[in-house]
């Protein structure tokens, strides 16, 4: 199957800091990729390059066969994106915001109403749909961000820390939603919670100091821990691979 996301040799330099160094990855439909790494490892920068918010210093991105460089509009139609912190206009109500996103995406009339009704029920926003976004709790804000990202039912979904700041119930709900979409879409989500990877991901990509240091199935990731480690085995592998000097070993 041709991959929906293809990032080739992505690099990003900010001044003389090399935030991302030669990241190559391909993600196909049906894959849910957990994008892991310590803070500052380059997760957000990589996602921003895949979505076209940042232009890579080097390398290129192809989404659903469309080059982000050559045909940005077609490439951008292929994905939904939840940026870090789930930004949204605070003075708009949830419905107004989703209408705005839908209109920019080219939806209108009944089709737009139907899409909004569908995502509102998918992420359970019924209760707050008429409230302005600034009055919402962190969990609801995050869900508005997710609703915005899946409004056009995209084949590709990119989410920067979708469960950050949610309570355990909300986390559970969002994970279920991701799992239910994971069979048909190509999903990349970044997270700090390793149990989340076990719960929803079919693949793990670990990034440290701007480079991919692991790419494989969650079971393989866990299996890297020595048998003597009984608890938090993934944490152990994470520390092992991302601590100083890990790069030399990989």
């Amino acid at each position: 199957m041709t991959p929906l996301i293809r990032a080739e040799n992505l690099s990003k330099r900010f001044g003389h800091i090399e935030a991302v160094r030669g990241v190559t990855l391909e993600v196909s439909a049906g894959e849910v990729v957990g994008f892991l790494g310590p803070n500052g490892a380059g997760k957000t920068t990589t996602m921003r390059m895949i979505t076209g918010f940042l232009e890579p210093t080097q390398g290129q991105v192809t989404l659903q066969g469309f080059s982000l460089d050559a045909s940005p509009i077609l490439a951008k139609r292929a994905f939904g994106y939840l940026p870090e912190g789930a930004p949204a206009y605070p003075d708009m109500s949830v419905l107004e915001y989703l209408q705005f996103i839908g209109q920019v995406r080219g939806f209108g009339g009944k089709a737009l109403d139907e899409r909004i009704a569908s995502v509102v029920s998918q992420v359970h926003l019924e209760r707050v749909q008429h409230q302005t976004i600034e009055t919402l709790s962190k969990g609801f804000k995050r869900r508005v961000g997710i609703a915005q990202a899946i409004l056009h039912d995209p084949p590709i979904l990119i989410m920067d820390e979708p469960t950050d700041g949610l309570d355990p119930n909300q986390k559970h709900e969002v994970r279920q939603l991701i799992r239910s979409m994971g069979s048909t879409k190509a999903i990349v989500l970044s997270t700090h919670i390793l149990e989340e990877v076990e719960a929803v991901c079919t693949r793990v990509i670990l990034i440290a100091a701007g480079k991919i240091v692991f790419d494989g199935r969650p079971q393989e990731f866990e299996a890297r821990a020595p048998a003597s480690v009984q608890r938090n085995r993934m944490d152990h592998v994470f520390r092992e691979l991302t601590s100083a000097g890990a790069e030399v070993r990989s």
Binding site: G52, L74, Y81, G85, P87, P90
Partner: peptide, 14 residues
């Protein structure tokens, strides 16, 4: 400041 520029500029519009 709000970060919404990241949503806006990744939407499919020139």
């Amino acid at each position: 400041r709000l970060g919404t520029i990241e949503v806006l500029t990744t939407l499919p519009l020139p």
